[in-house]
Design a binder for these strands. Sequence first.
RNA 1: GGAGGAGUGGCCGAGUGGUCUAAGGCGGCGGUCUUGAAAACCGUUGGGCGGAAGCCCCGUAGGUUCGAAUCCUAUCUCCUCCGCCA
Length: 427
Amino acid sequence: MIDLKLILQNPEEVEKKLSLRRETYDLSGIQELAKKRSQLQVQGDQLRSERNRLSKEVGNLMRQGKKDEAGTIKSEAAKIPARLEELEKEQTQVEAGLREQLLRIPNLPDASVPVGTSEADNRVERVIGNPRSFDFKVKDHVELGELLGIIDFEAAARIAGARFSLLKGDGSRLERALINFMLDLHTGEHGYTEILPPFMGSAETFTASGHLPKFEQDLFKVEPFGFYLAPTAEVPLTNMYRGQILAEEDLPKKLCAYTPCFRSEAGSYGKDVRGLIRLHLFDKVELYKFTRPEQSFAELESLVKDAGKVLDLLGLPFRVVSLCTADLGFASAKTYDLEVWLPGQNAYREISSCSNCTDFQARRASIRFKKAGSKGTELVHTLNGSGLAVGRTMVAILENFQEEDGTVKLPEVLWKYMGKKEIKVKG
RNA sequence: GGAGGAGUGGCCGAGUGGUCUAAGGCGGCGGUCUUGAAAACCGUUGGGCGGAAGCCCCGUAGGUUCGAAUCCUAUCUCCUCCGCCA
């Protein structure tokens, strides 16, 4: 949620910022409901105040044994509850409506985000590494996976249908190797604490992260239990401290987590139907931070660095792209995508998305910290980023390090995890 | 699935209808004392809305009442025992 106060104090500016995204938003309903709510609040407060005063008096008189006087006041006070109930009912309704609308307003883009109308306006920040030139016709990862006997899409389809994968032998070992390599790097070198959270959560959890109520169609729901499967570890990690007050000295809190990710991919029919690129179920290692507000944008830069380090060490060429206002996710104020070079597609493809959600999720989840020296609490900022999407990393390794016969030379950092230096075509 | 118990402020914990809407302790902060520190002692210390007065928050949601942490109902979570089970 964005701050209601911001909307009430400066609606024009909020509307202007929101209009930089693709959709348009009308804030007049929110303004009206907020006004109504504070009126009801004041009226209710006055009634409650009166009731409290009279009740106290009844108590005093009873103690003094003045039963008759107490009775008189009692009957006067008895008129209040009915009126109060009416007001409270109306206020509850108004508040529910207000919240419903607020929950569907996205975060405001940061001033540093390039303004644009489509992903074509995303800004390339830097390019790292050079795509290798091949003197033979490159195969894509689907061909390589079959040739090497490490990916079996037909078997996956038998089990679960389209958009699933089945890895075997060195394929499944490579997946496991990548997960371990990434976790070891982020915990060992970058100072993140490893978390293994639940992969599903309640509606409340998904509302806090911003995935509900607006994006239910993108999620798998577990009926009849009411759980949703996490499309990213960002969801459980955001909720680890829901409703908590953190100590300032514990910030920034840096977490990383391997989880499977479940996505319905509603509306993506016909897109990336081939291969490991877009699946209903994939593995990801996620990076996550809770920070003080002043440090969140600096922490975003270092988060991008941490994710990029994985690609560096694997020897994969990539570029960093700053998403424009139209391409920004719902909860994000600023997002950098890392795009890895895929020879099989002759293109850079997203392999990590790193976002600063500022106080947007923290407000929904009520995650605050106590400021040293001053009274009260303040909302933290939350950041998340892939470090990295494991399946797409496997795609990049297969395609970038293939030999003419299909053999794949593994990056040196993976040798110890794989127990070998290459995946050979079976003779 | 069966039986029982428990959810109170950062933490522990008292409080079973009305002396302030939470005693006391720990922790935190400030101070006295001290060369400094510890100890001791004194003071202070939850969250939300509001300019303020004031209002709300004792797991959550309802209910009873002039008045609910306290009584009733539902629900969630945790614990113990039994059963089942990876």
